[in-house]
Amino acid sequence: MNRIQAKLKEDKKLLSIYFSAGFPEVNDTVEIIKRLEKSGVDMIEIGLPFSDPLADGPTIQASSTKALKNGMHTALLFKQLKDIRKEVSVPLILMGYFNPMLQYGVEAFCKKCHEVGIDGFIIPDLPAQVYDEEYKAIFDRYGLLNIFLITPQTSNDRIQYMDSISEGFIYMVSSASTTGAQSGFGHTQEDYFKRIADLNLKNPQIVGFGISNKQTFTQATTHAKGAIIGSAFIKYIDAQGIAKIHEFVGNILN
């Protein structure tokens, strides 16, 4: 069983953390992953920085730009992750835009991810249908799960279609927005979380975009299996450095 699937079977609400590889410093990647695991994080999303991150708000745009300036690139990330599976067992998801993967070669990229121990992908600009028709077979061959995003505007039919072609979790984008921290969720979001829960999908749902603290984490996980924090974590390590990661995570889990 894939590490993501095993984790999803655990009887608890899951906390997943996103960070941009190569930020704040180019060689922080492995250290951040180790610290996150040690702090009790359940899943980690490693952001492969891209020059034009369309679905991202200002915080992740800035961390991507900085990471690229620091010299982060695809081959370097694979090099940094070469021995990561000797050190951590937490599920690792690569989140990135499709163009850098295309340029690396989709098959070569998947092969390399499999070798270093990546468990799945989140690719915001790879549409479900294109994945299904052109890339699913390759991802499957290397045991990589593809995670789909849904939003409050996504129709039930489409959600059911995505559910049928995926085997990990459904990434529930909290509201119609680019990534970024929000201070709280209102009734519209609660209704939406509940509506999706009531669809009884085969894949559990994890909420992302706008989760920033214990309160939003708790709200998001009332109806969902877990939640993902990105921008708020990036802001935190930008200000506090990576040494205090356990405090950030502790504030959410305890």
Binding site: D125, A128, V130, L149, I150, T151, Q153
Partner: peptide, 11 residues
């Protein structure tokens, strides 16, 4: 061509 867009733009 095609439409390589984030899901948020799909509708």
């Amino acid at each position: 061509g095609g439409a390589f867009i984030p899901e948020m733009l799909y509708p």
